[in-house]
Design a protein around this nucleic acid. Structure first.
Length: 198
DNA sequence: CATGGGATTGACT
DNA sequence: GTCAATCCCATGC
């Protein structure tokens, strides 16, 4: 992906990232679940303004924003929108593609569908830690590659974001329809489909 | 400087 | 279904 891809609106980027390939060295997977976060809504870390934690979010697009969640897990985001605007896409789940044995070793679980079906799990499987916060997604150790054949325009499911208490009504979670690697099942009745993208 | 709250996960009832 | 682990950081005194 190029810089212009990330410089667009965060919701649009979140949708387009489903089907792309997230890679860190020998391990890679197809992105099947994303969430958009924008400084204008309180669930986004950037909502509090420019701080030591959030300055990456306000920096130039196409950078990694990695932070520690619940003291245990590293969560990976792709910074989007113009420099000066705090926005990022949280990657919530992958379908494992390359380096599965390495992933199993790091995760300690055998089942392929358990390797990357959660935001904290995929960072463990791909060995993405806090030292990669701020790293460049264009030419750095972490890269996001265009969709492989068959993943060019997956049908998307849309719903509310997971695990937040503020701005929980926004339908900013996007998921590849039919993937068995999503992090959590879709609440009945909240599910809605989005037409395949062109 | 002390405190409180998570964009979660895995183990357990 | 419940719950604790564990640490970074923003906030408030």
């Amino acid at each position: 992906m190029n810089r212009a891809f990330y410089e667009r609106g965060v919701v649009e980027v979140a949708q387009d990232l489903v089907g792309c390939v997230l890679r860190h060295r020998e391990t890679a997977g197809v992105i099947v679940e994303t969430e958009a976060y924008h400084e204008s809504e309180p669930a986004c870390h950037a909502h509090v303004g420019l701080t030591g934690r959030t300055h990456i979010l306000f920096g130039p697009p196409a950078r990694a924003y990695v932070y520690r969640s619940y003291g245990i897990h590293a969560l990976f985001n792709a910074v989007t929108e113009a420099e000066g605007v705090g926005a990022a896409v949280l990657i919530r789940a992958l379908e494992p593609l390359e380096g599965l044995d390495l992933m199993r070793e790091r995760r300690g679980v055998p089942r392929t569908e358990d390797l990357c079906n959660g935001p904290g799990k995929l960072t463990q499987a791909l060995d993405i830690e806090l030292d990669l916060n701020g790293s460049d997604l264009l030419g750095g150790p972490i890269a996001i590659e265009p969709p492989r054949p068959g993943w060019e325009s997956p049908e998307l499911l849309v719903g509310p974001r997971i695990g937040i208490t503020k701005a929980a009504e926004l339908p900013w979670r996007f998921c590849a329809a039919g993937s068995r690697s999503v992090s959590r099942p879709w609440p009945k009745g909240l599910r809605d489909t989005l037409a395949p993208r062109v």
